[in-house]
């Protein structure tokens, strides 16, 4: 009798298990395409025009190195227009600018070709009016405006000013530590936001409780925050994961920070101390990225001086890019490091 009951229960358990409906959307770690992205064009005060490019590395982990050449080139004109050769995972927006010649006409195009993992794609830069970009657009598209909310204060935001200390060209031996120092000054816009993404707006309302809490948190004096430690990141994560709020558009936590990443040169054998905040859109919780569902901006150094150390194990020439990001706009500095062989 018991055996028969067991059979029945086993059948009941079996039919309770989902029958393996295929997941149609996967988070591949490697092997997927690298798409160059044309972000739009902007006009400078002197009338000159820059085209802005970024990329989408479809992989969640694979770092790709594509040297300048047939697989990473611009045309017409010079193949090397300052694009990266080291590609971080996932979405990287507004990565670099290309100044177009003054005789560039509306029907002309500037084409960036990338080939990686066996796939070749091109980004076609043009002066289509739909793709005109200014600072508000950049803040919107990188997530500082949530689903598209702004006010005069945030629209007046200007990028942080960043000054690299110690020169743009360095030389170091493999295994030695290189000290990198940058001074960052910002206008305080946008306000530093709370740890957890609210989702950039709920399904149809702007007034949901999370938004209200965020607004209150943003307005709260800092000393009050210190007195009340509040929920831990893990508690906030649990809350966020329980939330039914969807991430309707790209959303980013605000909070001035400075981070280094490799722009040209391989990642292998390069180690930063402290570990750097990801400048790419790692949307996974606790991913140390401002686009993560939970992310805590670092404490600001009192003197605005951001200090990191980097060590290389492989000789070669590396271009490191340092980014000062206030959550809405950013400024970059670059340092070229020639790494010589270690003294044996």
């Amino acid at each position: 009798m018991i055996g028969r009951f067991a059979v029945l229960l086993l059948a009941a358990v079996s039919i309770s298990i989902p029958d393996g409906a295929e997941a149609q959307r996967h988070t591949y770690t490697k092997g997927q395409p690298l798409y160059p992205a044309y972000e739009g064009w902007e006009q400078n005060e002197d009338g000159s025009i820059d085209m802005l490019f970024g990329y989408m590395n479809q992989n969640w982990e694979q770092l790709l190195d594509v040297p300048i050449g047939a697989d990473n080139q611009f045309s017409p004109g010079t193949a090397d227009q300052g694009q990266p050769t080291h590609f971080l995972p996932r979405r990287n927006r507004f990565v670099f600018k290309v100044r177009i010649p003054s005789d560039f006409e509306e029907d002309d195009e500037l084409v960036w070709t990338l080939r990686a993992n066996g796939h070749e794609f091109k980004a076609y830069g043009s002066l289509r009016k739909d793709l005109f970009v200014d600072n508000v657009v950049i803040m919107s598209e990188t997530g500082a405006l949530g689903a598209g909310s702004s006010n005069p204060e945030i629209r007046a935001n200007v990028p942080p000013a960043v000054e690299l200390q110690g020169g743009m060209e360095r030389s170091v031996r493999a295994g030695e530590t290189l000290r990198l120092e940058a001074i960052v000054i910002d206008d305080g816009q946008p306000n530093r936001s709370s740890l957890v993404l609210s989702g950039g707006g709920s399904s149809d309302d702007e007034d949901d409780e999370e938004d209200a809490q965020e607004e209150d948190e943003a307005a709260a004096p800092e000393e009050e925050e210190e007195e009340d430690a509040g929920p831990t990141p893990r508690q906030l994560l649990a809350s966020a994961l329980r939330s039914s709020t969807a991430t309707v558009t790209v959303s980013k936590r605000s909070g001035l920070h400075f981070t280094w990443f490799i722009y040209r040169g391989p990642e292998e054998g390069v180690e930063f101390d402290p570990p750097q905040i990801k400048p790419w859109e790692d949307t996974r919780p606790f991913a140390n990225s401002p686009w993560a569902r939970v992310w805590e901006a670092p404490e600001l150094p009192e003197d605005g001086r951001w200090v990191s150390e980097v060590t290389f194990t492989q000789p070669g020439t590396y271009v490191l890019r340092g980014r000062a990001d206030d959550g809405g706009l950013f400024s970059d500095v670059e340092v070229t490091v020639v790494v010589r062989a270690a003294v044996s």
Partner: peptide, 16 residues
Amino acid sequence: TARLGIGDGLNISIAP
């Protein structure tokens, strides 16, 4: 009224 949202505005990738 429920406060439900279904969507993913972060990870969109549309090939050419």
